[in-house]
C-alpha cells in the first residue's frame, strides 16, 4: 500500500485517522510481538497522530514505543491474546 501521509490523515474523520494508523501499525507490531500486537497497537493509538506517523517512518521510534508499551502492559499484568 502507498505510504500514509499527514495530508491523507487530515482528510479523514478523527476516529478514521486512528483506524488508518492502526491498520499500518498493527502489522509492524505483530512482526515483533504476535501475541500482544492488538493490545500494543491499542495503547499506541492513544499517542498523537503526528508522532504515530513518525513512528511508521522510523522503526527505531516504533520499537522504542513498543518496548515502553510492553513494560506498561506487564505492569498491568495484561494477559496475552490467544
Amino acid at each position: 500500500p502507498e505510504p500514509l501521509t499527514a495530508s491523507m490523515l487530515a482528510a479523514a474523520p478523527l476516529m478514521d485517522q486512528k483506524q488508518l494508523l492502526g491498520e499500518r501499525l498493527y502489522p509492524m507490531i505483530h512482526a515483533l510481538h504476535p501475541n500482544l500486537a492488538g493490545k500494543i497497537t491499542g495503547m499506541l493509538l492513544e499517542i498523537d497522530n503526528s508522532e504515530l506517523l513518525h513512528m511508521l517512518e522510523s522503526p527505531e521510534s516504533l520499537h522504542s514505543k513498543v518496548d515502553e508499551a510492553i513494560a506498561v502492559l506487564q505492569a498491568h499484568q495484561v494477559k496475552e491474546c490467544s
Binding site: M15, K18, L45, H76, C81
Partner: peptide, 26 residues
Amino acid sequence: SNGTNINWPPEFCPGVPWKGLQNIDP
C-alpha cells in the same frame, strides 16, 4: 470509570472499526 479498568488497553483488531477507549469505558 474508577481508573482501574482491567480491560485497558482496548485491543486493536485489523479490519474492525476502532472505537478506542469507548470499547472499554462507555
